[in-house]
Design a binder for these strands. Sequence first.
DNA 1: CTGTATCCTTAGGGATACTG
DNA 2: CAGTATCCCTAAGGATACAG
Lengths: 132, 132
Amino acid sequence: MPTRSQCPISNVLDHVGDKWSLLIIRDLMFFGKHTYSDLQNSEEKMATNILSSRLEKLENDGLINKQIDPTDKRKKVYSLTPAGVDILPILIEMIIWSSKHAPDLNIPTELVARAHNDRSGLIQDLTSRLLA
Amino acid sequence: MPTRSQCPISNVLDHVGDKWSLLIIRDLMFFGKHTYSDLQNSEEKMATNILSSRLEKLENDGLINKQIDPTDKRKKVYSLTPAGVDILPILIEMIIWSSKHAPDLNIPTELVARAHNDRSGLIQDLTSRLLA
DNA sequence: CTGTATCCTTAGGGATACTG
DNA sequence: CAGTATCCCTAAGGATACAG
């Protein structure tokens, strides 16, 4: 997606403003997925060509890394870059929004509670774990 | 966009996970725009048919209101619902992300500073102003 | 298993004309 | 001014086959 303007919100959307990219980041962030087949088996079942193209774009945009698994050279492992980890607060706010406005969904209530009570601590904990 | 899963992040994307909806909300929220032509003259210049369809979807989804201007019955005025106002923290986190990872953009620095120093106060101030 | 490539259909979107 | 409608093209996306 080309740069549309100098607006910081528009800029984020130019990177992840589609239906799938944030779900890939979610899976890497919250569900410990790091292989292609892990990601393909997400609840939303994205098509393999879409997954492939999004991984390529996210890597080009500097949000994820693609590495060879050191324990098995045939495998490839996807992980978040620091810029990718910094998407975390955006996802947390989305979870909070849904917990308020779409309470019928499967919301991790203890996560929401901690996001309210100790937001910066939560983000620091998750971030340090993800960057470890 | 149909519901894809029970995930709260996916749910938000089902409402605003396209290239334009959050920009409309941004314009209503930060730039005091409330008419069709106001919105059409945003920096990103969205096409009139797209603007029309997004306004319709956002209204159906309960994020914006469309009302007759009480001072001029010919005019229509768009405004955010409480659910729309609650998108604010998501936008703030997007601005923070860009301020960190795309510092070349036009970022409102005093907003970012306050988002760091007094995040909940900032959100309360903006929210109460928007709902006033 | 980890993807790429292809085929095909649908949705997104730009330009512009048109209506109340 | 405030939209709707149409035309047309491109991008997104699903299904599936295929390659390393």
